[in-house]
Structures are given as structure tokens and as C-alpha cells.
Computed example of a mutant assay.
Amino acid sequence: MTNMHNKIFAEISRRNLLKGAAWATAGLASARLFTTTAYAAGGELNIMAWEGYDLNVELADWRKANGVTVKSSSMTSQDDVHTPFLAGNPPGIDVAEYNHAYADLYIRELQIVKPLDRSKLPNYSGDNLFDAFFDKPTWFSNGQLWAAPYIWGMNSIVYNPKRLQAPTSYADLLKPELKGRIAIWDEPTVMWPIAARVAGLGEKYPQLTRDEVNAAFTELGKWRDHARLIALNMGELINFMVSGEIDAVVCADPAIIVQAQQQSVELAIAYPKEGAVLWVDAWFMPVSCDNEETAQAFINEALNPEVQAKVAMAVNQAPVSKKAVEFLDEKSRERFAFDQVDQMLKAGLPGIPPAASDSDIASYGDWLQAWQSFKAGK
């Protein structure tokens, strides 16, 4: 292992690894027990994905037709994917998601990504995908395709429209009547950009100094002190929204709207003046993948236009396939300006802090340490 890798691992592991170690033991220890014949089509596929994004429903027919059995583990944060690799015992994952901001860390720094064989991915094409998602450096570099973007969207304020009017600013959630009625999501890729924005440092994110990071979390502390809870995952957010214990989430995945609807509770999304958090998620094969043939077939099917439309509608987000737009329902087509996708994505996607820093710019580890202190109320 190079000195650079040692330094990166040390920086990231400053997050005491308790959450990652617990997840690796409880969530993926069982996954290591499952093996498949290498390169055999069909068989068992171990997937790590966000709750509701694992294509369990959308690819049911494909699994049945190909004799594929899926074991799916849910992510509660992006750290759940890479943390087990830091322990030196790669988990048995065949396919996992990474947020666009983690591309450089996963591909070039940690080197936990196995390149894809484009000949196995006919749906990954300029004819099928919006230009913003085809062969861009976030997924394609040095002549190799490292991951296939498959869903994109934005996280923003989610609220109960029967309890309050649509917030126009994150500050609206600090009204006295909402004391103890809001929640924060324990997901760095969502909350860190928000912390920077409410502190007036949004344009600098993620290149904030350590002092600026402290200032950002001090400002975000107003929302923490106003909140009922810092939710560990989307399931917890849904439960508190459905039970009526909270009325709004500072910034959340709109997928909880669909899941709340299934429990007869109507939620809505608001777009504050400070902006929603844009993101793109991609499927990749970790270096521990031992069922490449099926993993790549899965990724290819995830880019099928009709599958793309189904998952986008299921989670209130948007497809990367331009051909999928015709399969969306009217409400889903109106949610995004699909004729302006390339322009929207060019406007910029929030990244993550540098894995290591030799200057006063805060590293990823510095942010994690500050986030842990924030959650502890310090």
C-alpha cells in the first residue's frame, strides 16, 4: 500500500469507524457467506444500495428470467459502502452505488472500483443517455468506464402541506411553532452542503478552511437545536412523518414522499432559495465482485428506458436515459425540465472535501470529526 493510501485511510478512519464496523459485522458478514461461480450468468448477486433504489421491484421479471437471486443490503449513508474496505477484509458486494462526489475517492484514491466491460452494457450509449451522463470524467476516465450513472435528482425540504405552508428558505423551519417538529438527516452528502449554504459559504463548498467548517456547523446548530431528532436513515424519517411527530425535514430524499403515500400520508417537497442539493448516483462493481457477468447484466438492465422510468417514478427522481422520458407519467415529466438536463448538470454538482489536506483546507476527516461533534450537540 502506498504512503498516499495510508494517509487517505488514516484521514477517513478518523471517523472512529464504529458505524462502519457495526455495519460490516451485522450487515455484510452474512454477505460474505454467499459466493457464486465467477463469470457465470445468473446465480446470486449481492447489492448495496439506498433504501428503495435497489431495483428489487423494477427488475423482478429480469431476475426470474435469468435465475438471479439478489441479496440486498441498505445504505444509510455513502460511508457504508467504502468503510468496510478500510478494514482490509473486502465485503462480498457485487454491485453498489456511489454518489458522483465520491468518484475520485473510490476510483483513484481508495481504488475499490473494478472497470466495466462496455461490450456488456449496450444500454450505456450516447443514443440512450442524456449527454450530461455519457462518458463524463465522473464515471469514465483513462479510457475505462468505472461506473454507470443510473439515477439523478435533488434532495430538498420535505414537509407536510397540511401542517405548514411550503417553506421558501431553510430559515423558515426555525419558526417558533416548529420547535421540536423538524428533523435532520444523518447523511453528509446532503447536510454538509446545507451547512455551508446557511453559513453563507455555499459557493466555497467543499473547499472550506477548518475555521469555516466550525462556523458552518455552529450555524447549522440552530436547526439541530430546533429539531426533534437527527434521523439515522430514511426509514426513521418516514416513521416520524407518518406518525405526525414531525412536520418537516431540513433536507431529504423525495423518495420518502412515495413511501409515506403508501401509508396514506401526503408529503410535499419545497425548493428553498438557498437551493436543493443536486446529485447523481452510479452503479459500480467493487473490487470484491465475484459475479461480474451478472453484475454487468444488472447494470445494463438498470439503464433500460422502461426500467429507468419505473425507478424514477418510484423514488420521485429523474432518469439518466432520455428515452425513458416518454415512459414517465405526467407528474414525473413535469417535475424536471428534461429539455434542460445538460444545462442543469453543467451548473455544478457538490463534491466532497479532499481526502487529505496539507493546507488549512479542511479534509474529509476534519469534516467527519466536526459532523460527529455537531451530532453530539457540541
Rank of each mutant, 00 (worst) to 15 (best):
L220E: 02
A227D: 00
Q165I: 01
E187F: 14
E274M: 04
D80W: 07
A166C: 04
E44I: 14
A231Q: 02
H100N: 13
G67P: 12
I112A: 01
V258L: 06
G143P: 07
A216S: 07
T83R: 09
S30R: 13
N160A: 12
C251V: 12
S13P: 03
A10Y: 08
E292D: 12
A347H: 12
A356L: 06
K114Y: 10
I184L: 14
K323T: 09
S156N: 15
L86K: 01
W146V: 07
L174H: 03
G275F: 06
K71I: 08
L229Y: 11
A337G: 09
A362Q: 05
I112G: 01
E292K: 15
F140V: 06
D366E: 10
K375I: 12
L59E: 00
V190C: 12
I8N: 04
E306S: 15
E97D: 13
N16K: 10
W371E: 03
N66E: 04
A29L: 13
A96T: 05
M313L: 00
T76W: 15
T2S: 10
S125Q: 08
K179I: 00
T76I: 10
D366P: 05
P91D: 04
D131E: 15
Q259M: 09
F217Q: 00
T76P: 00
D360A: 15
E292L: 09
I299Y: 00
I182H: 10
A49L: 08
W62D: 00
P149S: 12
D358K: 03
F374P: 03
I257F: 11
N142R: 14
L129I: 13
N56F: 10
Q343M: 10
G153N: 13
S73H: 09
G27H: 08
A215S: 09
N66G: 10
G351L: 15
A252D: 13
E219W: 01
E236F: 05
A255C: 08
P272H: 05
T168C: 01
A31P: 02
G244T: 11
D135I: 07
L110E: 01
A171F: 03
D281H: 14
A96F: 02
R210G: 11
I256T: 11
I93R: 14
E219P: 04
A282L: 14
M285N: 13
S264R: 11
A295G: 05
Q259I: 05
A312K: 03
A370H: 04
E44N: 13
T76M: 15
M191C: 00
S30K: 14
T138G: 14
T138V: 14
M48H: 14
E219M: 15
V198D: 04
N46D: 11
T189F: 11
Q111K: 10
T25L: 13
P91Q: 11
A29Y: 12
S141P: 00
D61I: 07
Q296V: 07
G275C: 08
A24P: 03
I256F: 05
R210D: 12
P188F: 06
G153E: 01
E301H: 05
D358H: 05
N46M: 11
E334F: 01
